[in-house]
């Protein structure tokens, strides 16, 4: 069974059909090691489709990771909507916006031809290359930074945006209403270009920042609409806390209608699975091995332990809680994949 069939089966709800769980990341799959090994360094790999494709597939090639992911940053959509982005030439740093351009929806200049704006064409070309090369063998994920986080972190000044939640929620509603179809447009372009799966990243929507009520009012409606518009299997990813005491976002995330969700290490896999099973038994959840604390720091024995625990607690996909930490040694990624192969054997690997 290849990696593509394995992940596809899980997202179709056929976990029983798989030989073992996948070892994956629903978000970024890049490291300094793979940039070096494949001569695909940042910032070039953000703007050159061949390098983007090589780097995205790097950890599958070097360590046997069960998926490939593009792009590599959080500002892609914001840039396409007019935000100036700093790529830190000559350094390996995450791109970041230089300024916040919007006070309200009228400040956003949506390009007529969104798909040729910013680096979207780069991602589309990279996806074409990846489909050609790995189609039907290794699943290719493209992530889309979802509107609440993308707008509220990279287009509008984040403190002001968060205050609107209480003072002027209609401003958020208006922005998200106007913008979600454009984010969905990007997602579908990715699908047409070669993405097998779309991850919607909504990092800004965890219990670290907002209340479950605000998740239901201001985030869920748009995620739900985007999921409905997107023509490929979908994953919703929130790396912050999704369960805390009596409060939880798992139910709300599931109600968005995606095929699966992925969570980070600050959310208990056991708690998340318990909630999920009450809502819809068997609903797939991926996670929640720490990218920095476990996969980067190691050592190998500890990586194995964390993988085993994630599987014991019910993970349907053994995934990192966040993008790979840049300095992660390839040997640690290999150890992660090997541990999943060992502990994640069917049936259920438990």
């Amino acid at each position: 069974m290849n990696a593509f069939d394995r992940l596809t089966a899980i997202l179709k709800g056929n976990r029983r059909d798989i030989d073992r769980l996948p070892a994956m990341s629903s978000v970024g799959t890049y490291t300094l090691d793979s940039m070096e090994a494949l001569d695909a360094h940042w910032p070039d790999a953000h703007r050159n489709p061949e390098k983007m494709a090589r780097l995205a597939a790097g950890l599958s090639m070097l360590a046997g990771l069960d998926n490939i992911t593009v792009p590599f940053d959080l500002t892609l959509e914001a840039e396409a909507f007019g935000a100036p982005v700093d790529f830190f030439e000559g350094q390996v740093k995450w791109p970041t916006v230089k300024e916040f351009i919007a006070d309200d929806a009228s400040d956003l200049r949506i390009p007529g031809d969104l798909l040729s704006a910013g680096r979207i064409p780069t991602v589309l070309k990279a996806l074409g290359i990846l489909r050609e090369e790995y189609g039907g063998e290794i699943p290719v994920i493209a992530y889309v930074n979802a509107p609440f986080t993308s707008i509220g972190s990279y287009l509008v000044e984040p403190s002001e945006f968060l205050k609107w939640i209480k003072r002027a929620p209609e401003k958020i509603t208006q922005l998200c209403n106007e913008m979600y179809p454009r984010y969905a447009e990007v997602a579908n372009a990715f699908v047409e270009a070669g993405a097998d799966i779309i991850t919607f990243r909504e990092e800004g929507a965890s219990l670290d920042s907002i209340s479950p009520r605000h998740f239901d009012d201001l985030i869920k409606p748009y995620l739900k609409k985007m999921v409905a518009l997107t023509r490929a299997p979908r994953i919703i990813h929130i790396c912050g806390q999704c369960v805390s005491g009596d409060l939880e976002l798992i139910t709300g995330m599931m109600e968005c209608g995606a095929e699966a969700i992925t969570i980070g290490e600050t959310t208990s896999m056991r708690a998340a699975k318990e909630i999920a099973d009450r809502v819809k038994s068997g609903y797939p959840i991926g996670g929640n091995v720490s990218a920095y604390n476990v996969i980067h720091n190691g050592p190998v024995e500890r990586i194995r332990d964390h993988v085993r625990v994630a599987i014991e607690e019910g993970a349907d996909m053994v995934a990192l809680g966040c993008d790979f930490w840049l300095e992660t040694p390839t040997a640690h990624v290999k150890a992660f994949v090997e541990a999943v192969k060992e502990f994640g054997k069917s049936p259920y690997g438990r």
Binding site: L162, K163, K166, D208, S209, I210, H214, S244, G245
Partner: peptide, 14 residues
């Protein structure tokens, strides 16, 4: 205690 969230904190700071 998660009675308040970030927006509350920000308004209080103001």
């Amino acid at each position: 205690r998660k009675e308040y969230f970030l927006p509350d904190m920000l308004l209080s700071a103001d």
